[in-house]
Design a binder for these strands. Structure first.
Length: 271
DNA sequence: CCGGACGCCTGTCGGC
DNA sequence: TGCCGACAGGCGTCCG
């Protein structure tokens, strides 16, 4: 489900409600996620105060005094802040109840998500240490993207979805960014020039900024920490719009499969 | 090193 | 109405 804008929207919803509050109780109903939830999480978290909620790529980092709880939403994960009295549903796997009566609840029907404790700085965790730059990091420059993509035969869409290249760009926003930049998603990464690389970076930033401002995209089940859907869905230019007229008014949006993922583009706008 | 396929899970939807 | 396959926002791993 969630790409960077949905994770960031979730983060922003949690921060004002839970920061500087202490954990009173932790309930883990299902440990079998992509990797097993850290054992005895209640012994680690109970009594600790949440100091900050950070984000790296699509990982949420709940920073406590003695370490960090790393949360990944996978495809269907949702983190919500609810009253601790709200009864749990079928796929509500983890509850973290704070001493002011609020409960941070992790729901994830497909269980591709993660809830992992690390005592060391999260950036050094195995899952995070090889990640590429954030989309707004100045290190993500046209020169960087151009140099990294030379000789690469993979489709540019797959290339920008590779977290070692740049983080946070999933299937929806890869499609959208390529449309903004006028680049065909199946084009070999190595055949994208420097000027197009610059347009692509600008496109990624513009699309992600706008999606965050709209509270993310809701296709099926995304809701933010307060239960609101994202409103970027109506701003999508190509994603899930096969057969519709592109905003250019001169062509119909096409659907193809690239790297086993649904891909959408305008044959008139993207080359 | 690179690229492509696969698997992990459950829910939903469309076609027959 | 029911069944069955395809598909879904991620990503680590395996194989050639």
């Amino acid at each position: 489900m969630p790409e960077l804008p949905e994770v960031e929207t979730t983060r922003r919803g949690i921060v004002p409600l839970l920061t500087n509050h202490a954990v009173e109780r932790v309930t883990v109903r299902e440990r079998r996620l992509r990797r097993p939830v850290t054992r005895n999480l209640h012994l680690i978290l109970e009594g600790q105060t949440l100091r900050a909620v950070d984000r790296r790529a699509k990982y949420l980092l709940l920073v406590f005094d003695s370490g960090t709880l790393i949360v990944h939403l996978g495809m269907t994960g949702v983190l919500r802040v609810l009253s601790s009295a709200t009864p749990p549903g079928k796929h509500d796997h983890v509850d973290i109840v704070f001493n002011h009566g609020h409960c941070l609840r992790f729901r994830d029907p497909r269980r591709f998500g993660l809830v992992l404790w690390t005592a060391a700085p999260a950036a050094r965790h195995k899952l995070l240490k090889h990640l590429g730059p954030e989309p707004w990091d100045p290190a993500l420059s046209a020169d960087y993207l151009y140099a990294l993509s030379r000789g690469r035969k993979a489709a540019i869409k797959n290339f920008i979805m590779d977290g070692r290249v740049v983080v946070g760009v999933g299937n929806i926003y890869a499609n959208e960014s390529l449309h903004v930049a006028g680049i065909h998603p199946a084009r070999a990464a190595g055949r994208v020039g420097r000027a197009s690389a610059q347009l692509l970076i600008a496109g990624i930033r513009q699309v992600l900024d706008n999606a965050i401002a709209a509270g993310g995209t809701t296709l099926r089940d995304f809701v933010s920490a307060d239960g609101q859907p994202g409103y970027f869905t109506r701003s999508l230019r190509v994603y899930a719009r096969a057969g519709q007229i592109c905003a250019c008014g001169r062509a119909t949006i096409r659907h193809v499969v690239i790297g086993q993922r649904s891909s959408f583009y305008c044959p008139r706008c993207q080359h």
